[in-house]
Nucleic acid binder design. Structure first.
Length: 456
RNA sequence: GGCGCGGUAGCCAAGUGGUAAGGCCGAGCUCUGCAAAAGCUCUAUGCGCCGGUUCAAUUCCGGCCCGCGCCUCCA
């Protein structure tokens, strides 16, 4: 079953396929900047890309997919963070890289096959800039920085339609860019390939033919993609915000440098909104995985919730959606427990995969899955069900962490159980009321009982 | 101002030119000393508004209203 995905460049739905003779599908996903914990909006993109990675493996075979996701470990934000904390840059980026990895693992995201860093590929970046200089696509400005000359690339703007945008520059853009622009660029549209060292950069500088400095943001993806996947890749993905300027600039750099098509397919996932707005610190609606965990939500519930919206549509995240996800996962877990190991008809799940392969329609896939689940377990076995879980990346063994039961609650529960055994129901009911007042629920079975915090 | 996306039940959210998936919540029932859990059942004559095309539109076309995102280093 072919995987179809919208291509942001050609603006149409296309079938994914490998182009290299080795049959390996080359997939590059723009990764995070490691200066702070990633928020759940970042993880929406990574979880969506993880589902894509899993589908690619199912489609082409696990050995025939090469997935690269970079780490941006040198830029204004990482350097500023290091400076503010008085620590070496590498310390800061190591800390947040480790955190990112831990969060990804908790969300059951498969690690990429290669996870290159910008600082680990200075030479590759310098080499590309060198070629761009030789070919006349770049110039060194008076401040020592090297810029890409946008007018030198006729194809500039094809991805983001930036040319149409510039026909009528609104006040918002012109005011902003003039205020922020202290560079020596020949044209406001030009962007930095190599940034000359400034005092605020501290020790974070490397030698280059154009003097000490550091690479611009955009060139890292071009260089790392080229090194690990070759000049032409099969798919390049990221969040919509990267469409312009980041991906537009990548295309310009790579195609001018290599003289060949950069990526055969571009895919951008939409943003996560919280309470109807984009997440931001100033709005106070920015969540991290740790915050949700502290509220008692499991990472798997977040993964599920992040997949309940179509990846190409903004998804409005609410805390309620985590409760819904938790309940849905519980139902899937209960269903799975009723299944025999083998012997089912895998074709039953065709509608689920059809939805996933049709532009990663994860909400449609969940709908199809529950339609099947609601019909009952007849004809379904564990192997085929687990294939669905694999594609969605749902690990049903992950449950909400159990809350610690205070000693006094344990004692009350024991007293009530004793009263119940003695058929003193009045006392048992009174004790249940006490437990309820204390925020605990006692779940009786025939022979035993469990304690759970009351649901809010 | 430009570019892009969207408005479907209390909430979240698929989808289709032929009469609305699914999850949550809620209600009822079964079960249970009670409660919870679990199981079963029910819950949009309706898909932002107004026109048009059509035998038929939520789905196509036009207009309008509203919301959101992006517009130089934010996934």
């Amino acid at each position: 079953m072919a995987i179809q995905l919208f291509d942001s460049l050609e603006r149409k739905i296309k079938v994914l396929s490998p182009s290299h003779p080795d049959g390996v599908f080359r997939f590059y996903n723009c990764g995070p900047t490691v200066y702070a914990p990633a928020h759940i909006g970042n993880f929406r993109t990574f979880v969506v890309n993880d589902v894509l990675r899993r589908l690619l493996e199912l489609e082409f075979g696990a050995a025939k997919v090469k997935h690269v996701r970079n780490l941006t470990d040198v830029d204004d934000k990482t350097i500023r963070r290091a400076r503010e904390e008085g620590r070496p840059l590498a310390d800061v980026t190591k800390q947040w890289t480790d955190k990112f990895h831990a969060d990804c693992a908790a969300l059951n995201c498969l690690p990429p096959h290669v996870e290159p860093t910008a600082t680990g590929h200075i030479k590759e970046q310098v080499d590309m800039i060198d070629v761009l200089m030789q070919k006349g696509n770049a110039y060194r400005a008076a401040d020592g920085s090297v810029y890409f000359k946008v007018t030198s690339f006729a194809g500039y703007g094809a991805l983001s339609r930036v040319k149409e945008r510039e026909l009528q520059l609104g006040s918002a853009l012109s005011g902003k860019s003039q205020a922020a622009d202290a560079d020596e660029k020949e044209d406001v549209s030009d962007f930095a390939l190599w940034k000359a060292h400034k005092p605020d950069d501290g020790a974070n500088a490397w030698d280059s033919p154009w003097g000490r400095g550091r690479p611009g943001w955009h060139i890292e993806c071009s260089a790392m993609s080229k090194k690990h996947l070759g000049e032409t890749i099969d798919l390049h993905t990221g969040g919509v915000d990267l469409l312009f300027p980041h991906h537009e600039n990548e295309i310009a750099q790579s195609e001018c440098c290599n003289g060949s098509q950069f990526s055969r397919h571009w895919y951008h996932s939409e943003h996560l909104l919280v309470d109807g707005k984009k997440m931001s610190k100033s709005l106070g609606n920015l969540y991290t995985l740790d915050q949700l965990k502290e509220m008692g939500h499991s990472p798997m519930a977040l993964r599920y919730a992040l997949l309940t919206g179509h990846p190409r549509k903004q998804l409005n995240f609410t805390l309620d959606s985590l409760h819904a996800a938790e309940s849905a996962l519980k139902a899937l877990r209960a269903f799975r427990a009723t299944l025999p190991a083998v012997g089912g008809d895998a074709a039953i799940f065709t509608p689920v995969f059809a939805a996933l392969n049709d532009e990663l329609n994860t909400p449609g896939a969940f709908g199809a899955l529950f339609t099947i689940v609601n019909r009952g377990p007849q004809g379904i076995s564990l192997d085929s069900f687990d294939r669905v879980l694999f594609a969605l990346g749902l690990n049903l063994d992950v449950t909400t962490p159990k809350a610690e039961v205070p000693a006094e609650i344990t004692a009350l529960a024991a007293k009530r159980w004793a009263a119940k055994q003695a058929k003193d129901f009045a006392a048992a009911d009174a004790l249940r009321k006490e437990l309820t007042a204390a925020g605990w629920s006692m779940l009786d079975s025939k022979t035993d009982y469990k304690l759970e915090p009351l649901k809010k």
